Structures are given as C-alpha cells and as structure tokens.
Simulated scan of single mutants.
Amino acid sequence: MVNVLFVCLGNICRSPMAEALFRDLVKKEGLEDQIVVDSAGTSGWHVDSPPHEGTLNILRKYKVPAEGLAGRQLKKEDAEKFDYIIGMDESNIQNIKKMLGQPRQPHIIRLLDLTDHQKDVPDPYYTGDFQETYDLLSEGCKRLLEKIKEEQL
C-alpha cells in the first residue's frame, strides 16, 4: 500500500483539492486498493472544518467527488505512515520538515517540482483564483501518479 499526504497551510483550499483530485485519478486508474490519499495543514486553524467554498465549487464544476474532506493538522506520526508527503509551496515544505524532524524520510516533495510550472501553488485563500489552483494541481497530481506508478507499482 502506498500512502500519500498532501499538505498546505490551513488544509481548506489547496491540499483538500489535491486530495480529491488525486483520489479521483487513483480511482479512475483502478488503484484505490493500492494507494491511500489524505491531506493535512501545517497550522491547526481549521481542524475538522470542511474545505473552503471556493474549493468545493471548483471540485463540483469538474465533477470531482469531495466526500470525507475535513481539515486536520499535520502530526509527527504522519512521517511514519506516509510514503509521499506533498507540499504546495516552499513554506509548507520547510514547515513539514520542522514538524516531522528526520524520521524514516518519506519522499517530501513540492508538488510543482514534478512539472514545468512555477514552483509554488498559489494559495487561493489569498488570491481568490481557485481555477488557477485547480489547473496546477491537476497537472501536478497526474505527474505524481506517474511517479508513484514508476517507483512503487
């Protein structure tokens, strides 16, 4: 089983959108019995909160299921549970490493490093541009799935 965790600051915009997109890709590829997907935030501001309405709206627009998404905070045990921990921006990556220390060293990756795009996924909580975030996450998630299939499956 391959465990994938998407991480952003608050776990209400980017990381739950990525979780939903990636889960949908995994299901369409028939890999849901081989890949588990989750998301978390480095802050605890939105624990147990649903995703931002902008995230839910864009997922609905593209018919991506969003059931079961709820905010949670990254915790030290995540380093042992997840094989891939995917940050949305450089600040997330630094916070992930600070919070998790140097355990068994899962793959900690900034998502857009897998693409030819800018390196940080802009936070739509501040930009208001959920479409841009969706487009960038869609490409990044496709590339991540290719990487996991090459390395693990």
Rank of each mutant, 00 (worst) to 15 (best):
F130T: 09
S138G: 10
D33M: 12
I58W: 02
D33A: 12
L5Y: 10
V4R: 09
P65H: 10
N57D: 15
L21M: 15
R14E: 11
G140T: 00
D89M: 10
S39Y: 12
D78M: 00
R60H: 11
Q73F: 06
F82T: 00
L153I: 07
A79I: 00
E139N: 12
I96N: 00
L137C: 14
E146A: 12
E77F: 02
E146S: 08
F82I: 00
D123H: 07
Q102H: 13
D116V: 14
F6D: 06
E151S: 02
R60T: 15
V64G: 05
Q118F: 08
Q34V: 02
R72Q: 15
D78P: 06
L21K: 02
K98Q: 13
T55D: 12
S49G: 07
L144R: 02
R143P: 00
L9I: 12
D123T: 01
A18P: 08
E132P: 01
L144Q: 07
D33K: 13
Q105G: 06
H107G: 02
I58A: 08
D123M: 04
A18S: 12
G30T: 06
L59G: 05
Q105V: 03
L153Q: 01
E32V: 10
N92E: 12
L114M: 06
N95W: 04
F82G: 03
T127K: 09
D33T: 08
T127V: 03
Y134T: 05
I96K: 00
C8F: 10
L111K: 05
P124C: 09
L74F: 09
Q94T: 15
N11Y: 13
D116Y: 12
E29W: 06
L56V: 14
I148H: 13
E19I: 10
S43M: 07
V4E: 04
S138V: 05
L59V: 03
T115Y: 03
L69W: 08
G10N: 13
E139Y: 06
K149S: 03
A18K: 00
L114D: 00
E90Q: 15
R143T: 01
L5A: 09
P50Q: 13
R60P: 02
Q152C: 12
R104N: 11
L25M: 14
D116Q: 14
F130Y: 14
M99D: 10
L74C: 09
V26S: 03
E146C: 00
K142P: 04
P65M: 06
L100R: 00
F6W: 07
A70G: 09
G101A: 04
K63P: 01
A40T: 02
I86C: 01
A20T: 12
L74V: 04
D24S: 14
G101E: 01
I93H: 03
N11E: 06
G128M: 08
K27V: 07
I93D: 05
V7Q: 05
I12N: 13
I58R: 02
D38R: 15
L112T: 08
K61D: 02
K63Y: 08
T55M: 05
I93K: 00
K149Q: 15
L111P: 03
H52W: 11
E150M: 02
T42C: 06
E32I: 09
L144E: 07
D89Q: 09
G30I: 03
S138Y: 10
S138C: 07
E80C: 03
V64Q: 07
T42E: 04
D116G: 11
K98N: 11
F22N: 04
Y62A: 01
S15F: 04
